[in-house]
Amino acid sequence: MTETLITETKRTVSIEYCPKCGWLLRSAYMSQELLTTFSTDLEGVLLKPSETSGTFSVRLDDEVIFDRKREGRFPEIKELKQLIRDRVNPGKSLGHSDR
């Protein structure tokens, strides 16, 4: 008798940032927050230095979910968690971040 394992494909977040602008620490902080909140929902978070100055964008797989240039600002961590939660685990409570 053979068992069939059904595995759920976990999603990957990529944060592309401008190293010349000094945005590595901001990117690392956001990745730590996302990995802590979505430890069982995400495959991982990739930090990607950009060759284009001023870049700060967040992707979930191939979907851009936040772009600093488009929005004219950086994302708040609460907002970023909500955007990711709505796509990877809509029923997940974010506690105080939901208020």
Results as ranks from 00 to 15, higher is better:
Glu76Gln: 14
Pro75Thr: 08
Lys10Gly: 00
Ser14Asp: 06
Ile15Gly: 12
Gly54Arg: 02
Gly54Lys: 04
Tyr29Ile: 11
Ala28Pro: 00
Arg11Asp: 07
Thr36His: 07
Lys78Leu: 06
Pro75Lys: 10
Cys21Tyr: 03
Gly54Pro: 02
Ser50Pro: 08
Leu60Ser: 08
Val13Leu: 00
Glu33Cys: 07
Pro49Val: 13
Gln32Leu: 08
Thr52Ser: 10
Lys69Cys: 06
Tyr29Met: 08
Asp61Thr: 10
Ile77Leu: 08
Thr37Phe: 00
Pro49Leu: 09
Ser57Val: 07
Arg87Glu: 13
Leu60Gln: 10
Thr37Met: 13
Ile65Leu: 12
Glu51Asp: 14
Arg11Pro: 02
Ser14His: 05
Leu25Ile: 04
Val88Lys: 03
Arg59Val: 02
Phe66Gln: 02
Ser39Ile: 01
Arg59Ser: 12
Asn89Ala: 15
Ser39Ala: 15
Leu24Asp: 01
Pro49Arg: 12
Thr40Trp: 00
Lys48Phe: 04
Gln82Arg: 15
Arg68Cys: 14
Glu51Ile: 09
Ser14Phe: 01
Ser27Arg: 02
Ser27Pro: 01
Arg87Pro: 04
Ile84His: 00
Glu16Val: 13
Cys21Ser: 14
Gly22Cys: 09
Phe56Leu: 09
Leu34Val: 09
Val13Arg: 00
Thr40Phe: 00
Asp61Glu: 15
Ile15Leu: 08
Pro90Cys: 09
Leu35Val: 03
Pro49Ala: 14
Gly22Trp: 03
Ile84Trp: 00
Phe56Asn: 06
Asp41Trp: 00
Tyr17Pro: 04
Thr55Asn: 03
Lys20Met: 11
Asp86Asn: 14
Leu60Phe: 11
Val45Tyr: 00
Lys81Tyr: 01
Ile15Ser: 13
Glu76Tyr: 13
Asp86Thr: 04
Arg85Ala: 06
Cys21Gly: 01
Arg70Asn: 12
Ile15Arg: 02
Cys18Arg: 09
Arg70Ser: 13
Glu33Asn: 02
Thr40Asp: 13
Glu16Cys: 11
